[in-house]
Amino acid sequence: MWYKRTIPLVIVFVIGVLAFAHNYVPYPEADDFREHMTKWFMIIGGFGLFLGAYSLLHMHVSRIRRMQPGWAYSAFVFIGAAGMIIVGLWNDGYGPLESAPSTAKTWFDWGFDYVQIPCSATIFSILAFFMASAAFRTFRARNVNAALLLVAALLVMFGRVPASESVGAWFGQQGFFPKIADLIMEFPNLAATRGILLGMSLGAISQSLRILFGIERSYMGVGD
């Protein structure tokens, strides 16, 4: 069916070619085109959020309806979302409790500052523990690659803490460990990153071409 398969692929091709070609043209229209597309994606993304919110809430409704294990916890999703949306819309974020808008913090800001920020900051900081356990996991692997990785990690990490200078001072080379860390970052790290990026560039170009020419269309749910 051409309107289910062909038209979307034609859209992909035409927009793709325009997206590629407009970069080489100094016409002011080319810049306008890019600005418009950015705005378009913002608008489509706005609609997308409705879809996403529906999907997220639907999943939790199903959990509650099917009484899956732990279904009661899903209620908190609704409490959190409803609370934020109500205070966000009501009185422009000032909520029902403030009589007139003032320059003070809104209830919407309150929800952000005292729920969202502590949660994200705490989860982010859990990484400190996870880095240790990930390193230990690698240590247990006991092969050459893991050893290389760990040694490099230790050297760079140690070179970046102030203590390394006092350790270096014991044998008269204060800047020894920081220097080692710098050397690793400057030479092997740069080389590998460059190799990864160069390889990736070709992979990306090749994938883009497969998509533009309709060879790869599995993202449309259309198998080959």
Binding site: L49, G52, M59
Partner: peptide, 8 residues
Amino acid sequence: ALSATSQF
């Protein structure tokens, strides 16, 4: 489904 809307 959508699992969440922000990174953390």
